[in-house]
């Protein structure tokens, strides 16, 4: 799979970035739509917004934030690689795999969140536990792929430690504190 990705690197780059934005929209559209509804309620009759306009606003906002995240992500990846002193890792390719990690995470979580349309009972428990479990699965997959591509038995422990610290810190921050 990754040899094909490397062979068609430019096409893969474009496709993965598009998939990133789409997956983010699938993941976050409900939150944006609810926010748009709250804004509409806040302004009441002073602001006329039809349902289709609300949906359009929510999808556009979601896509814009997805694009912004897509450009912000390399900054965090570079920071991680610099702090960890992984200077031998090809940054562009590694960033692309990070994008792919988020595509997988957003897609699975977004699909699971569709259950919110059927029942709201999973929102609190499901929303937080699903995301944690899915992100754990995705990060294991990401580590499995990248450790084989860029690291060996000697450098792997250091890479694993740093990746685990970053992941667990983020999981604690977003899963427990926020």
């Amino acid at each position: 799979m990754f040899s094909k990705l490397r062979q068609n690197y430019r096409l893969s780059n474009i496709l993965i970035r598009i998939a990133f934005v789409l997956a983010y929209v699938l993941y976050s559209w409900q939150t944006w739509l609810a926010s748009a509804q709250l804004v509409k309620m806040q302004f009441g009759s002073a602001m006329f917004l039809s349902d289709s306009m609300l949906v359009a606003i929510a999808l556009t906002s979601s896509a814009l934030v997805g694009v912004a995240l897509m450009f912000l992500l390399p900054l965090f990846v570079n920071l991680f690689l610099n702090v960890s002193k992984f200077h031998n890792v090809p940054r562009a390719e590694f960033t692309l795999l990070v994008h792919l990690f988020f595509v997988l995470f957003y897609f699975v979580c977004g699909s699971l969140e569709l259950f919110n349309l059927l029942t709201p009972l999973l929102i609190n428990w499901g929303g937080r536990l699903f995301e944690l479990l899915v992100s754990a699965g995705c990060v294991i997959w990401f580590y499995d792929v990248t450790s084989k591509l860029y690291f060996n038995d000697v450098t792997n422990p250091y890479y694993f430690r740093n990746l685990a610290i970053v992941y667990l810190a983020c999981a604690f921050l977003f899963g427990v504190l926020l």
């Binding site: 409900q30 609810a34 609190n124």
Partner: peptide, 20 residues
């Protein structure tokens, strides 16, 4: 209707979800 609409996860009243 049950489960219809968008649930923001905003807990205004302690229900665990918000509905207008």
């Amino acid at each position: 209707p049950y489960g219809l609409g968008v649930y923001a996860g905003i807990d205004f009243y302690g229900y665990g979800y918000y509905e207008y």
